[in-house]
């Protein structure tokens, strides 16, 4: 632990967040959200494999109103996490590290994730 007396400014409401920072927070938030979905997913998987009746019940839950409403934010979380993750992998290999290209790719992730979520959610 280093002790110093430098001033600390941590007022989150006065911070200006660049788009890459907002994308990064989204990466973490989507990860936590998906972790909470794991038990639900396992429950549905188990149900769908308990004979024809269970399969029909799982289908009913997924295609019902509640399932449809929840599908969109979960698809967004998945796609945002996936796209932002691919972006980080490129940056690990020194591709797109500059300030300008980092900003551009962050904007691309922020836009592509919700758009793809709507398209895939519509097709599913």
């Amino acid at each position: 632990m280093i002790i110093n007396n430098r001033p600390v400014f941590l007022n989150l409401f006065q911070f200006r967040f660049p788009i890459a920072a907002i994308m990064s927070v989204g990466h973490r938030a989507s990860g936590v959200l998906m972790l909470l979905c794991v038990p639900v997913l396992l429950y549905l998987l188990q149900l769908s494999l308990q004979g024809a009746q269970g399969f029909a019940r799982a289908q009913e839950i997924l295609q019902g109103g509640m399932g449809r409403i929840l599908l969109l934010p979960i698809l967004w979380a998945l796609l945002h996490h996936l796209l932002a993750g691919i972006r980080y992998l490129f940056i690990d290999f020194d591709i797109g590290v500059s300030k300008q290209s980092g900003r551009r790719s962050a904007i691309a992730v922020m836009l592509a994730a919700p758009l793809l979520a709507i398209v895939i959610g519509f097709l599913l």
Partner: peptide, 17 residues
Amino acid sequence: LIGLFLFSPPTSYEAWQ
């Protein structure tokens, strides 16, 4: 997985199992 569910989703318990 997304490809599987978009292009050839399992439609019956037998197919899924």
